[in-house]
């Protein structure tokens, strides 16, 4: 579903991604972990071209998005992203947040988009907030709306960049519950997170990034039982405290 091949990324002189190779199969759940500044966000943002790789190739669902004239807006319609800071549209109601792109970009009728939007709100437990504005919701609620907004695009891939890092501790679980529920479906998920409980529950593959490289890949069990590198052990000992 996602093929990352020989990707390098520079920010000026800063070499942020170093020859990254990664395959994500259709329906696979991949969790990306690693210390701050290791390039996790940059990598996941390359997968929908919010960042452009300096060299290398990324193929999403058969489309080479790094090709010069790649139909990137078309690809983005089916590759949804959930951000650390939610990024809901504050001037739109919750339901409008869910229906805006489906109606304008995918040309789905307003009725249809509202109907499916309400269903997804129901699923994240926020149907009664359909007419509220994002500012009237708690952080956890906003992030659940953001997930519903992503789902209403009917994506085949969902990218999560630290979806719970900006949340108060007591709100983390409600968002993780929604994500675990989501993971039961065939949707492909790439999740940057330090929630190892989540990784254990849903991940098919965990990736540990360090200094712009993928230092170690494996199942969640591998990381819990016998991580190979000292860097990995040190990192895990810090986040699993």
């Amino acid at each position: 579903m996602i093929k990352v091949q020989g990707v390098n990324k520079f920010f000026g002189p800063l070499h942020v991604l170093k020859d990254i190779n990664l395959n994500v199969d259709s329906g696979e759940k991949v969790v990306v972990i690693g210390p701050s500044g290791s390039g996790k966000s940059t990598l996941i943002r390359c997968m929908n071209l919010l960042e452009t790789p300096s060299t290398g190739q990324i193929v999403v669902d058969g489309v080479d998005i790094t090709a010069p004239k790649a139909p990137i807006t078309k690809v983005r319609e089916s590759v949804a992203m959930v951000f650390q800071q939610f990024n809901l549209y504050p001037h739109k109601t919750v339901l409008e947040n869910l229906t805006l792109a489906p109606t304008l970009i995918k040309k789905i009728s307003r009725d249809e988009a509202s109907e499916s939007g309400l269903a997804f709100l129901e699923r994240v437990g926020l149907r009664e907030k359909a007419d509220a504005y994002p500012a009237q919701l708690s952080g956890g609620q906003q992030q659940r709306v953001a997930i519903a907004r992503a789902l209403n695009m009917r994506p085949t891939v969902m990218l999560f960049d630290e979806p719970t890092s900006a949340l108060d501790p007591e709100m983390i679980q409600e968002v993780l519950d929604v994500m675990v529920d989501l993971a039961k479906e065939g949707i492909t998920m790439v999740v940057v997170t330090h929630e190892m409980g989540f990784a254990k529950q849903v991940a098919d593959q965990v990736i540990f990034m360090d200094g712009g490289t993928i230092l170690e890949k494996g199942s969640p069990e591998h990381f819990f039982t016998n991580p190979e590198h000292d860097r990995t052990k040190l990192f895990l000992s810090r986040i699993l405290r």
């Binding site: 929908n48 319609e77 992203m81 951000f83 990024n87 504050p90 001037h91 970009i105």
Partner: peptide, 24 residues
């Protein structure tokens, strides 16, 4: 992040400007 959210949903630059950024 507003522009990025719009891009991530498939908006073009002008679509994102007109519907998301300029209204704010």
């Amino acid at each position: 992040g507003q522009l990025e959210a719009a891009y991530s949903q498939g908006f073009s630059y002008w679509g994102a400007m007109i519907h998301i950024v300029l209204p704010q």
